[in-house]
Measured scan of single mutants.
Amino acid sequence: DYEVGESVTVMDGPFATLPATISEVNAEQQKLKVLVSIFGRETPVELTFGQVSKI
């Protein structure tokens, strides 16, 4: 299970290999909103559970 505030690594898509912090969890739809730090700015990205891995 994923929790808000948890650190994960993006495994898929254009942000693969980047660390991210979970900002929202939708367990019903198996989706997460995460904040990816790009060029010093936090960018919100919506991903599925399968696109991230716990650190």
Rank of each mutant, 00 (worst) to 15 (best):
D1K: 13
Y2A: 02
Y2I: 03
Y2T: 00
Y2H: 04
E3H: 14
E3R: 14
E3K: 14
E3D: 08
E3I: 13
V4A: 06
V4C: 06
V4E: 06
G5H: 04
G5W: 04
E6K: 05
E6S: 07
E6H: 07
S7H: 14
S7R: 15
V8I: 09
V8R: 01
V8H: 01
V8P: 00
V8Y: 02
V8K: 00
T9E: 07
T9K: 08
V10K: 00
V10M: 05
V10Y: 01
V10H: 01
V10R: 00
M11R: 09
M11Y: 05
D12M: 12
D12W: 14
G13N: 02
G13P: 03
G13S: 03
G13Y: 02
P14Q: 08
P14D: 07
P14S: 05
F15Q: 02
A16D: 04
A16P: 02
T17V: 04
T17M: 12
L18F: 14
L18D: 02
L18Q: 08
L18G: 03
P19V: 15
P19H: 14
A20E: 00
A20N: 01
A20P: 00
T21K: 12
I22Y: 01
I22N: 00
I22E: 00
S23F: 15
S23E: 10
S23C: 14
S23T: 15
E24N: 07
E24H: 10
E24A: 10
V25Q: 02
V25C: 05
V25S: 03
N26P: 01
N26T: 05
N26G: 04
A27H: 14
A27D: 08
A27R: 14
E28F: 11
Q29E: 12
Q29W: 08
Q29P: 03
Q29Y: 10
Q29K: 10
Q30F: 09
Q30T: 06
Q30E: 08
Q30R: 14
Q30L: 09
Q30H: 09
K31E: 05
K31I: 12
K31Y: 09
K31T: 14
L32P: 00
L32S: 00
L32R: 00
L32D: 00
K33L: 14
K33Q: 09
K33P: 00
K33W: 14
V34N: 00
V34F: 01
L35T: 09
L35S: 06
L35P: 00
L35I: 14
V36H: 01
V36C: 05
V36F: 04
V36R: 00
V36E: 00
S37F: 13
S37N: 12
S37T: 14
S37G: 07
I38R: 08
I38M: 09
I38S: 07
I38P: 04
I38Y: 13
F39M: 12
G40I: 03
R41V: 15
R41P: 05
R41L: 13
R41A: 10
R41E: 09
R41W: 10
E42Q: 11
E42T: 10
E42W: 13
E42V: 12
E42Y: 11
E42I: 13
E42L: 14
T43V: 15
T43Q: 12
T43N: 07
P44Q: 15
P44D: 10
V45F: 07
V45R: 02
V45E: 04
V45T: 07
V45G: 03
E46R: 05
E46C: 10
L47E: 00
L47G: 00
L47Q: 01
T48D: 12
T48G: 11
F49Q: 02
F49W: 08
F49G: 01
F49H: 03
F49L: 04
G50E: 12
G50Y: 10
G50S: 14
Q51V: 03
V52R: 00
V52D: 01
V52A: 04
S53Q: 13
S53I: 11
K54C: 04
K54T: 05
I55Y: 10
I55L: 12
I55V: 12
I55N: 11
